[in-house]
Computed example of a mutant assay.
Amino acid sequence: MAQLIRQPQLLCGQGWADYGLVDSGNGRKLERYGDFLFIRPEPQALWQPREADWDAPHLAPHGEFVPGADEDGGGRWNYTRPVPRDGWPLSWPNGGANGGESVRFTAQCTPFRHLGFFPDMAPVWGWMGEQLQGMQAAQTLNLFGYTGVGSLALSRFGSVTHVDASKKSVAQARENAALSGMSDRPIRWIIDDAAKFTAREVRRGKRYDGIIMDPPKFGRGPDGEVWRLEEHLPGLIHDARRLLDGQSRFLFLTVYAVRMSSLAIAGLLEEAFADLPGVIEHGDLAVQDDVGGRLLPTAIFARWRQGEA
Rank of each mutant, 00 (worst) to 15 (best):
M121Y: 09
G74I: 13
G100Y: 00
D70V: 04
F65H: 09
N94Y: 04
G74A: 15
S151M: 10
G96R: 03
N94L: 09
L154I: 06
C109A: 15
V124E: 09
G68W: 05
S155V: 04
W127S: 04
G73A: 08
T140V: 11
R81W: 08
A138I: 02
L132V: 00
L143S: 08
E71Q: 13
T106A: 12
P123R: 02
G134C: 10
A97Y: 02
L141D: 06
D72M: 13
F65N: 10
N78W: 03
N94E: 08
G95D: 09
S91L: 05
P93V: 03
L115F: 11
F112C: 11
L115Q: 14
T140Y: 02
Q108G: 11
G68M: 08
A107R: 03
L143W: 07
F65K: 12
P82I: 09
E71W: 05
M121K: 14
Y146F: 11
T110A: 13
T140D: 03
P119I: 12
P84F: 06
V103A: 07
G96E: 05
C109D: 12
P82S: 14
T110W: 14
P111K: 12
T147G: 07
G148N: 13
A69M: 12
A122M: 10
P93I: 02
V83Q: 15
E71P: 01
G145D: 08
R104Q: 13
V149G: 05
G74T: 12
Q139W: 01
S151A: 15
T147K: 09
Y79M: 12
R85K: 15
P111F: 09
Q133G: 00
Q133V: 01
T147W: 10
R113G: 03
M128T: 10
W88M: 10
E101Y: 03
G87T: 05
W127E: 11
G100I: 01
G74M: 13
G75H: 06
F118W: 05
W127K: 04
G75F: 02
N142P: 03
Y146Q: 09
T110V: 07
F118K: 03
A138K: 00
R104K: 11
S151V: 08
D70Y: 05
L132C: 00
F65T: 07
S91P: 00
A107Y: 02
T110G: 07
L143Y: 03
G145S: 15
L154G: 07
P93Q: 09
W92V: 05
A153I: 06
G75D: 08
L141S: 10
L154F: 03
D72I: 03
G74E: 14
D70G: 15
P84I: 08
L132H: 00
P119E: 13
Q136E: 14
F112G: 14
N142T: 02
N142Q: 06
G129D: 01
A69N: 13
P111V: 07
P119A: 15
G148R: 11
R113N: 08
Q133H: 07
R85S: 13
R113H: 09
S91W: 02
E71R: 14
A122Y: 02
L132P: 00
P84N: 12
L141H: 04
